[in-house]
Design a protein around this nucleic acid. Structure first.
Length: 278
DNA sequence: ACCCAGGTGGCTT
DNA sequence: AAGCCACATGGG
């Protein structure tokens, strides 16, 4: 008896699974056979495949509306790429390279903790850290073995309660390093105050600074004007536009002026293009 | 052995 | 406001 359900969404455009899942916005999806991806969003596990303009999601939960929202299918990315190149022609190569990227609508709490872990860390290790956090503080997702890449259970992302109650030394035992106390403190604050809605609230969390706040705004709160500046973007802005590496303010202002409410998309195309190029 | 990674907090100029 | 530095860990 099958525990998952299959959702077929036809007529999708501007979508490339590899680019979506490898562009650095999420950390829990892995390639499966035949170009498919398997992974999880919050407490839902799924396997995703694309054939032509038909997107198939085999999932343990979430209806079609949820997965449409997750993949941002209501947004016209062709138009966005055109608008970006219109505002700043030098970004066109990056947009072309990252064809099919979509900014996933991720759970805010998952985004908060994931990007706290991301600071001063590398992507393979971020993925491992998040995986051990889920295995220790999440729960095995019912039916997930039917969609996982290895036939094993997938674990849900931990709840705010679970992380707020975790011991800092237990978190540290998962090799989370000095971020352990940031995780616990932020989970507690999230529980006490609810989901942060703006940059200022995010910055009041222990372990969230300007860069991580921007990532959370973009990936978790869908504020597409957010323009996260990390070491890669600094390098891009230096190489392409001659900004001093320390002039993050200038980079932000440039992005706001050139791209406005689309700056987040621009950042993602630039980041992916440049990071892959190394 | 070494430098670095989707940085931040805290302290000192 | 700007400039240091420590921080935990392991990828390459």
């Amino acid at each position: 008896m099958k525990k998952t359900k299959t959702i077929i969404i036809e007529g999708v455009k501007d979508i490339d699974l590899t680019h979506i899942f490898e562009c650095g916005q999420c950390f829990r999806w892995v390639p499966a056979e035949g170009g498919e991806y398997a992974g999880a969003a919050g407490d839902k596990a799924a396997r995703v495949s694309l054939e032509g303009d038909e997107l198939t999601v085999e999932a343990t939960g979430g209806d079609e509306a949820f997965w449409r929202g997750y993949f941002d299918l209501g947004t016209d990315y062709g138009r966005i790429r055109a608008a970006l190149a219109d505002g700043e022609p030098r970004i066109e190569a990056a947009c072309r390279y990252g064809y099919g990227i979509r900014i996933l609508k991720q759970d805010p709490f998952e985004t908060i903790i994931s990007f706290i872990i991301s600071q001063n860390n590398n992507i393979p290790r971020i993925r491992k850290n998040i995986e051990s956090l889920c295995r220790t503080y999440g729960h095995p997702i019912e039916g997930s073995e039917e969609v996982s890449s290895d036939g094993e259970k997938v674990y849900s992302f931990p709840s705010p309660e679970a992380l707020a109650e975790a011991g800092v030394s237990d978190l540290a035992a998962l090799r989370l390093g000095y971020r352990s106390e940031y995780i616990k403190a932020s989970a507690k604050q999230y529980l006490a105050e609810g989901c942060p809605a703006c940059r200022e609230e995010l910055l009041s969390f222990h372990g969230i600074g300007p860069k991580v706040a921007n990532c959370i705004m973009l990936f978790g709160l869908r504020d597409t004007a957010a323009f996260p500046v990390d070491t890669w973007v600094k390098q891009i802005m230096n190489d392409m536009y001659g900004f001093e590496m320390s002039d993050v303010k200038g980079m932000q202002a440039f992005a706001a002026e050139k791209f406005g409410p689309l700056a987040g998309y621009a950042q993602q195309y630039l980041f992916y293009y440049y990071r892959d190029r190394k």
